[in-house]
Amino acid sequence: MLPLTECIGKVIEWWRDPQIYNAAVKIYALLPPLFTPTLFWVDAPYGRFAGSLFFDWSLSGKWAWSIMEGVSPVIYTLSMLLVAPQQVDQWQPSQVLLYGLWMIHYINRAIIHPLRAPSMAPIHTIAFISAVLINILNGYTNGVWNARHSFSLSTPNVALGLGLWVTGFSINVYHDSILFNLRRTKKKNKETNQPQQRYFIPKGGLFDYVSCPNYLGEVVEWTGFAILTSGSYPALAFAATTFGNLVPRGKRAHAWYQNQFKKEYPSSRKAIVPYIF
């Protein structure tokens, strides 16, 4: 059995190995075309679809969410520290920018989001494990790429990409707030013995045009990130994975709303993209 220091050394050696990194990028690039068609027919078991599988191995929603979302920034940070050829105080401005955007997103997702949410549905063990594995791959490939690359911030694609990222992030946070307020209304009605209503039709902002504006925001956000990097392979894989996961889920969520509320649900609403899809 190898001593602890040797084990750590081997892990660092593998982490820095270009062949392992290239294999990870290829695997990541293959994921969207493999799982996207399935998600048009099968609901990933979390959120409103938490009980969609025939067996229930669910975990606490808030704790599972925090752990699976928290994996990515940890792996990204380790990748930067283990692979970057210079010290943290010598990172280039582009490296600082990408790292900062990554941390802002995932601190919100892993810590702020579950703290703000009045409640979160249980997350099935399969969804939890899948998310952890994808976030390991995601944090590793994007973190290593950022550690090995830098670029000028004075190019048009950086301005466009950053603008899209900020827009997508803002859309996501704002519409999450609307959903949280609906959950608070439900909780208040329960506490005051008001007539119970299990689900509500979200209204306001882009909810007046689409069923899942928070999904639209996330797709815009990571498309902007990929543009900002001038199309790095890991960032493109992340954007494709986000699209491939959330677009089918948005379509099925839209159908769920229509089925749940029947004629009450606005017929003009689309699934994710206003007036189009």
Rank of each mutant, 00 (worst) to 15 (best):
S119I: 09
S119G: 08
S119Y: 11
M120I: 04
A121P: 01
A121I: 01
A121Y: 02
I123Q: 03
I123H: 04
H124K: 03
H124S: 08
H124Y: 01
T125D: 00
I126T: 05
I126P: 00
A127I: 02
A127D: 01
A127M: 01
F128R: 03
F128C: 00
F128E: 00
I129S: 05
I129K: 03
S130Q: 00
S130L: 10
A131M: 10
A131N: 05
V132M: 09
V132S: 07
V132L: 06
L133A: 08
N135C: 12
N135D: 12
N135E: 09
N135I: 09
N135T: 05
N135M: 08
I136E: 01
L137V: 02
L137P: 00
L137E: 03
N138W: 05
N138P: 11
N138S: 11
N138E: 09
G139D: 04
Y140G: 01
Y140R: 06
Y140H: 06
N142M: 10
N142W: 02
N142K: 08
G143M: 08
G143H: 10
G143K: 00
G143V: 03
V144S: 06
V144M: 06
V144C: 07
W145F: 14
W145E: 06
W145M: 04
W145D: 04
N146T: 15
N146R: 11
N146Q: 13
A147E: 04
A147M: 05
H149Y: 10
H149G: 07
S150D: 09
S150P: 04
S150T: 07
S152H: 14
S152R: 14
S152N: 12
L153K: 07
L153E: 10
L153C: 06
L153M: 13
L153P: 08
S154I: 05
T155L: 15
P156Q: 10
P156S: 08
N157S: 15
N157Y: 13
V158S: 10
V158R: 13
V158I: 14
G161W: 08
G161E: 11
L162V: 13
L164P: 01
L164Y: 07
L164V: 00
L164N: 03
L164R: 02
V166F: 13
V166I: 15
T167S: 15
G168P: 02
F169L: 15
S170K: 12
I171H: 01
I171L: 11
I171Y: 07
N172E: 02
N172L: 02
